[in-house]
Nucleic acid binder design. Sequence first.
DNA 1: AACGAAACGAGAGCACCGCTCTTGATTACG
DNA 2: CGTAATCAAGAGCGGTGCTCTCGTTTCGTT
Lengths: 231, 231
Amino acid sequence: MTTVRGARARARIEITAAIKDEARTQLAAEGAAKLSLRAVARELGMVSSALYRYFPSRDDLLTALIVDAYDAVGAAAEQAAADTAAQRPLARWTAVCRAVRAWAVAHPHEYALIYGSPVPGYTAPQDTIAPAARVGLVLIDITRRAHDGEGVALPPLPDDLRPEAERIAADIAPDLPPALAVALVAAWSQLFGLVSFEVFGQFHRVVEDRDTFFATAARRLGQDVGLLPRG
Amino acid sequence: MTTVRGARARARIEITAAIKDEARTQLAAEGAAKLSLRAVARELGMVSSALYRYFPSRDDLLTALIVDAYDAVGAAAEQAAADTAAQRPLARWTAVCRAVRAWAVAHPHEYALIYGSPVPGYTAPQDTIAPAARVGLVLIDITRRAHDGEGVALPPLPDDLRPEAERIAADIAPDLPPALAVALVAAWSQLFGLVSFEVFGQFHRVVEDRDTFFATAARRLGQDVGLLPRG
DNA sequence: AACGAAACGAGAGCACCGCTCTTGATTACG
DNA sequence: CGTAATCAAGAGCGGTGCTCTCGTTTCGTT
């Protein structure tokens, strides 16, 4: 029942969105390092000090963009999972991986914002940790369905890793075997290793047909978490 | 025979090194974003304009630091390989991985400089590509010795990846089978995915015992390139 | 309907930044 | 020895993030 209070509140929402949009535009054009509050304000026809009514600092603006970026890549992953709901787990896994990569390639600067060097300070704000988990949750869910269904095939867990594996499993998916949980975390980070190397240019003049390369690498990642190939 | 020309040339070398050292100090303290030429000059007791005699721009200073960082992590990897020359390939592989990770954890900002978001522009300068390859070369060498010795066990290559795999093999290690070359590139990027997630804080409150977690992940990476466990 | 509080845009200003240009001193080389 | 190159220093330009003040406008409350 509580609709938007009035013209002022409505304007605030719109202006906040306009600032983020313009900031995203500059981010895509020049990268996070060259994102300037003054330039954003200038482009929006306001004075720079007015912008501080909406974001207390440049880092807070960046944090908002980070949250949006996590949500965007998370939504892309969830969409890929939904689109492949009827397919086999390994196919869904690779589809999600491909969606993450496609989003990253399409938005390299936003990707760099969330999976590159942390730019504001050392510790990420609390607001970012929930959106940051979305891609991981999608991967966990696909693997869980495989585990509940046709099962997963995993190598045994080294003895010295068992306590940590049980801790991880309790943390991210208590219903899953520890060996699967730890394999998931490893595959999760390795997926972003593949994507980062491509987006950040480390594959320059090494990998050319990156679509195919990534496809088989993602597939192997899926097998590493126990997903079974064909029938 | 051509020794250092005179006091001037000697001073230039020393001052250049002092600038880089001070820049590295500030890098470790505050990160690349807050590295300031003026602050470096101030700390060295000179005026900021004098610093431009040694580095044409801030980005050139950063590039020098990037080259040094690649060399440092490359040297760490080579050292680990040398220290384990008598051991089995899989043990050497994990030792090199551990060395890379240890260096990264000890020098997070320098690591972010080379394996995080590219900060200066889009394209890395030519000077950086040779040092950037050092870690990869170490991994290739270890795998090559395994291949020449006890052999490696690899899953077959998908048909659609064969052309690209042969291209990659011709590029990085013509004497190695294409399936091995492509597995190496994938493992290489996935190794840095593991390290990046730890250094950049993505494992926060997910992985706690990171030593053992990384050890088994690195070991599995070695098996992914066909390295054989025990005897 | 009127009032006080809160939010707002605009402007000036602070300290800092990367970088350029000029000046004068020091060193190196033909 | 003298000329040319190299150097540190200073002033200055346009830019940045951010703060503070000042009128104005909107809002919630009486």
